[in-house]
Simulated assay, not measured.
Amino acid sequence: MRIEVEEESDGRWIAEAPEIPGGLAYGGSKAEAISKVETLVLRILADRLENGEPAPELDKVFTVAA
């Protein structure tokens, strides 16, 4: 999944997973912002699964052996 990262004018970093609504996180460093958005995206996808909602993004994460 693609993550876009940008440094804000105040020195904070923002990371966004554009494919996931709400997949946006700030961090004090680039690495921290990326880690936070990855964690958030996984939580969003897990919540979708638990609620029976579609999560087609998981097709890029998991494969099921026949």
Rank of each mutant, 00 (worst) to 15 (best):
M1A: 13
M1H: 14
M1G: 15
M1I: 08
M1E: 12
R2W: 08
R2P: 15
I3V: 15
I3C: 06
I3A: 04
E4P: 04
V5A: 01
V5T: 15
E6Y: 02
E6N: 14
E6W: 08
E7A: 13
E8S: 01
E8D: 12
E8P: 03
E8C: 06
E8L: 15
E8K: 13
S9H: 06
S9P: 07
D10V: 05
D10A: 02
D10L: 02
G11T: 03
G11N: 10
G11S: 11
G11W: 07
G11D: 11
R12H: 13
W13D: 05
I14L: 15
I14Y: 00
I14D: 04
I14V: 15
I14H: 06
I14W: 03
E16Y: 04
E16S: 11
E16H: 08
E16N: 03
A17V: 15
P18K: 09
P18W: 02
P18Q: 00
E19S: 13
I20D: 04
P21M: 00
G22S: 13
G22N: 10
G23L: 05
G23V: 01
L24Q: 02
A25H: 04
Y26P: 03
Y26V: 00
Y26H: 02
G27K: 10
G27A: 09
G28L: 13
G28V: 07
G28C: 11
S29F: 01
K30Q: 13
E32H: 03
E32P: 04
E32Y: 02
E32S: 10
A33S: 07
I34T: 08
S35W: 08
S35Y: 09
S35K: 14
V37Q: 00
E38Q: 14
E38P: 04
L40W: 07
L40S: 09
V41C: 14
L42R: 12
L42Q: 14
L42C: 05
R43T: 13
I44F: 07
I44G: 00
I44Y: 02
I44V: 11
L45E: 09
A46M: 10
D47W: 00
D47Y: 07
L49C: 15
L49A: 14
L49S: 14
L49R: 12
E50D: 07
E50H: 03
E50P: 06
N51H: 15
G52W: 00
G52C: 06
G52T: 06
E53G: 02
E53A: 14
E53W: 11
P54D: 10
P54W: 00
P54N: 01
P54H: 04
A55I: 05
A55S: 03
A55V: 04
A55M: 09
A55E: 05
P56H: 10
P56Q: 01
E57G: 07
E57Y: 06
E57W: 05
E57F: 00
L58E: 13
L58Q: 13
L58A: 11
D59E: 15
K60G: 07
V61C: 05
V61W: 03
V61L: 14
V61I: 15
F62A: 12
F62D: 01
F62Y: 11
T63K: 08
T63S: 13
T63M: 04
T63H: 10
V64A: 11
V64W: 09
V64I: 14
A65S: 08
A65L: 11
A66P: 14
